[in-house]
Design a protein around this nucleic acid. Structure first.
Lengths: 163, 163
DNA sequence: CCTAACTCGGATATCAGATATCCGAGTTCT
DNA sequence: AGAACTCGGATATCTGATATCCGAGTTAGG
């Protein structure tokens, strides 16, 4: 069970957008270049972030993407759900209601023990991700990154066409 | 991101094996019939449980599967890992080290913030699953199942060929 | 001891979802 | 008003999961 790489891309894009100066935005192609990922495919993930209301896009000649709300109001869980969809890891197919021990469906408890345990674990996972927001990650990235890498990033930002 | 149905099958098989009378075992075909799932494919999952040391198999004319150790020594996490493999949900591809801000690899912190948060959430998920063992699930299944379903299960067990 | 039947285990087709890409609709600046 | 550039949804390719089969090995019985 592996999550899509696009979650990683989307998270890093959100962090970069959070670090932009006020009013500045970046195009999908620029975000792709900065992260070294295929541009047309990254666009698909940006569309998903758009539909989830995490980023806002502006069309036309000076268009681009920016965060749609404050960075500390976007959790890592929001980003994950935007890319992967909100379906649970575990989907109970009610196999207890199949086979020779089957009785009428109404007689069973609402959730079987296996599904309940899986659901509880998933809630723990979601709660942990919900505690992390993009502002935290952005601050951590700047603090932890090699100073030279930050400087190169700033230089790159000065180079690219302003949108 | 969805886990394989085989995890559900494997968990229910482990529960059923835990409920068997001492010394009794069931063949792959019998386990498949009881759960209403495709036999030859379930066998693949049983092989995975075998390699993980969760169940033990006996070959030959009176062969079958039984739990390899006490039911309370098998966690739901053990079953999950046996089926899905132990690879993490999130695999960091180090995109921070790509693109125009790249510097020498040695200058970076060991784990980036995004990967760290993902890893922590995954640990919470695993810890929750590790707290649930097959003996608990077996007890809960008997307690929660409709009495008639339990009776039908016992009758079925008396019907099938003893291995 | 030999036979025969039945079991598990790994190798093999089929299919869905993810991956990667392209072109059209719409918008903004000149 | 025109032109160029942007986003957005529809389209090929491909890896991994799904479902199945047959052979090797083992056990009970004659």
């Amino acid at each position: 069970m592996r999550m899509s790489e696009r979650v990683e891309w989307a998270a890093h894009c959100a962090v970069l957008l959070a670090l932009l100066p006020d009013g500045r935005s970046l195009t999908a192609a620029q975000l792709a270049e900065y992260h070294g990922v295929p541009g047309p495919y990254l666009a698909k993930s940006l569309q998903a972030l758009m539909q989830a209301g995490i980023v806002a896009s502006r069309s036309g000649r000076s268009g681009g993407y920016r965060l749609a709300r404050a960075a500390d109001a976007v959790s890592l869980l929001d980003v994950f759900d935007a890319i992967e969809g909100e379906g649970a890891f575990f989907r109970c197919t009610e196999i207890r209601r199949r086979g020779p021990s089957r009785v009428a469906a109404a007689r069973y408890t609402p959730v079987c023990g296996v599904a309940g345990a899986m659901w509880e674990a998933e809630q723990a996972w979601r709660a942990s991700l919900a505690r992390v927001n993009i502002a935290d990650l952005a601050a951590g990235t700047v603090a932890d990154a090699p100073p030279e890498a930050v400087a190169k990033g700033v230089r790159w930002l000065a180079t690219v066409r302003v949108t």
